[in-house]
Amino acid sequence: MKNKKPKKEKSGSISRRGFLKGAGIAAAGTVIIGSGVAVLESRKSVQNKDFEPKTINISMKVNGSIRQLNIEPRTTLADALRNELHLTGTKVGCNRGACSACTVWINGIPTLSCMTLAIEVGDREVTTIEGLAKNDRLHPLQEAFMDHDATQCGFCTPGMIMTAAHLLEHNPSPTEKEIKVALSGNFCRCGTHPKVIAATLDAAKKM
């Protein structure tokens, strides 16, 4: 399941993501997560002038096609999608698991791409907002979001849709409460919540 309650970053210690990224550097390509000490050590190595960013080649299945990536091991999935594959529909709002703007599916499960390293994906399949419409046919939720004016600035919208679409895949006729539970980690500063809920109810009816 989606990581709704991330570990808090204590000042002076290492954040979960910093930890993951540090571990990434230390282990260069493997997904072994080292101890905190190892992370600190790897930080030191960053401070070493000889350090050169080492990139690695990986391939990843995204929205149905296999893509090749040349990235640093510490690159998050969000950054890989956005900066390397130019799939900028996935947004980064907080970069630490607190807003769900970066929600994508990995093997159909909503996942925070800011809390996931690209190298963690392995041979699983990533679906982003760009891959939700099938054969140019919009997902009913996308239609409903337009009909109900469930977007304002639109920055939270991809994350909202990826979260709610997953709910509808598994629960075709959710109650309002179930929708609220599913979307309870999605932050929206513009205040689209009432219309997002209405749109999701409506899309369920039409699916």
Partner: peptide, 19 residues
């Protein structure tokens, strides 16, 4: 009236400065 830029927002094709 539907927002004329709603399609870009729901499909992820809207390009913000961050993008």
């Amino acid at each position: 009236i539907k927002r004329i830029d709603a399609l870009a927002k729901v499909t992820g094709s809207a390009v913000f400065t961050a993008d």
